[in-house]
Design a protein around this nucleic acid. Structure first.
Length: 424
RNA sequence: GGAGGAAUGGCAGAGUGGUCGAAUGCACUGGUCUUGAAAACCAGCGUACCGAGAGGUACCGGGGGUUCGAAUCCCUCUUCCUCCGCCA
């Protein structure tokens, strides 16, 4: 959520930048400023009347000790009438705040200056392309869902029987490969100085609101009505909320956290061949990295996170490219996002395996996550996160790209974790 | 699930209707002293909004109420702790 003061000071920039998302927010911005002025006015008036009443009730005791009944009565009336005005004022104030909030909460983050304009994923800019040749497969190479069947490592049918379509069941070396990937990713994150946490996998409304899933993505999350809880769509949600209502000191930066969790997504409305196999599922596993950083350094930190993710893909020997998302494809809460895509040879397409974003103060404003500068003034911190990495699609790409006539070869870096070097 | 108890500033912990934004201790920051450090002493030290400033207002788990006046009384919700039951 953007701050009103920020909007006030950066009105023209905001209107211009929102255009890359395809939004015209000029009217909304005017309305926000107008409502905020009204809010200030009403509050000022109420504050003054409250101050008057406070003074008046201060003299109450001495008057009553002196037995001045008439004065007391007059005082009581004066306070009562003031109180009525305050009450009316405050109900107007509440309405104004609500109206203001409704507009603010529906306003997405302001895109970073480097975000290209565009509507769909086709307008995304290739930030770093894969420069070597893409792997060419042997005669008779097949997509991962067929490999999964052939080696009996992923069982979609049984998953569907147990839960429903889109809930894969991993078996044998398939399950072990996933566990190996998780351990590999967590070990890499730990080595890079990220603190591992294992957060709750269900979260309450406040938590889902603060990282921006509510109200924007209400229908995308599984919701447990009985207990009023949401299943997490990503570890970003519980992990970032560790810093809700906190004031950190500047020396705590950069805060680096990592977590492995399952991710649950309803993916309502998805269908067709591009959702086949592991391409799009309701439950997948992911190692997430989250950082809280000083505003001056958050874009350097974003690059640092990019390098971390890149390192993982290099070690896994997977062909990848990095995209800078265009305005139309940019998430609601993000100011700048880079997507990592891995080339899936048998499907001959790029699969998104990571999304690394800087949210600037969009989340921390809701979280109230602040730090104090040397003058003890508090400012909102910046929050960032990225997948490092999402498992299902990495598995899909590994299976497809590494298939040979006599089995699927496990990349060197992963073998200490799998304890086998081939799936056959 | 049943029965009790608790929730106050970074932490600990006073405060049961009036001058309490809140004693005290610890922690922290600045200063004095010291070759340096420690100790001691002095001063400062919550958050947010409005205001150029002086200053004003709100906040003692959340919400509502009583009262001229609420941290303090009433209602309600939430969380935590203890005991019993159940249990990975």
């Amino acid at each position: 959520m953007l701050q009103v003061n920020f909007i006030r000071q950066n009105k023209e920039t905001l209107i211009q930048r929102m255009k890359v998302r395809g939004l015209d927010v000029a009217d909304k911005v005017e309305k926000i400023l107008e409502l905020d002025d009204l809010r200030k006015h009403l509050q000022y008036d109420s504050d003054n009347r409250k101050a008057e009443n406070k003074k008046a009730s201060g003299s109450f005791r001495s008057l009553s000790q002196q037995g001045k009944k008439n004065e007391l009565e007059e005082l009581r009336n004066q306070i009562a009438s003031n109180k009525n005005t305050i009450k009316e004022n405050e109900s107007k104030l509440d309405k104004t705040k609500e109206e203001l909030y409704d507009i603010l909460v529906a306003l997405p983050n302001m895109p970073h200056e480097s975000v290209p304009a565009g509507h769909t994923d086709e307008d995304n800019e290739v930030f770093k392309a894969w420069e070597s040749d893409l792997p060419s497969l042997h005669e008779g190479a097949v997509p991962h869902w067929e490999l999964a069947k052939k080696y009996d490592i992923i069982d979609m049918e049984t998953g569907a029987k147990i839960a429903g379509a889109g809930f894969p069941l991993f078996k044998g070396k398939g399950a072990q490969l996933k566990r190996a990937l998780v351990n590999f990713f967590l070990a890499e994150a730990s080595d890079a100085g990220f603190l591992e946490v294992l957060p709750p996998h269900l979260v309450n409304k406040d938590t889902a609101f603060c990282t921006g899933q509510l109200p924007d993505k209400e229908g995308q999350m599984y919701y447990v009505t009985e207990d009023d809880l949401y299943l997490i769509p990503t570890a970003e949600v519980p992990v970032t909320n560790m810093y809700r209502d906190t004031i950190v000191s500047e020396s705590d930066f950069p805060i680096k956290l990592t977590a492995y969790t399952p991710c649950f997504r309803r993916e309502a409305g998805s269908y067709g061949s591009h959702v086949r196999g592991l391409n799009r599922v309701h439950q997948f596993e992911k190692v997430e990295i989250v950082m809280i950083e000083h505003p001056d350094r958050s874009y350097d930190t974003l690059q640092y996170m990019l390098r971390h993710v890149e390192g993982l893909l290099k070690k896994l020997e997977l062909p990848y490219r990095i995209l800078r998302l265009c305005g139309g494809d940019l998430g609601f809460t993000s100011a700048l996002t880079f997507d990592f895509e891995v080339y899936s040879a048998a499907q001959n397409r790029w699969l998104e395996v990571s999304s690394v974003s800087n949210f600037e103060t969009f989340q921390t404003n809701r979280l109230k996550c602040r730090f104090k500068d040397e003058n003890k003034k508090s400012h909102l911190a910046h929050s960032l996160n990225g997948s490092a990495l999402a498992l299902a699609r990495i598995v899909a790409a590994l299976l497809e790209n590494n298939q040979t006539a006599d089995g699927i070869i496990i990349p060197e870096a992963l073998r200490p974790y799998t304890r086998f070097d081939k799936i056959d």
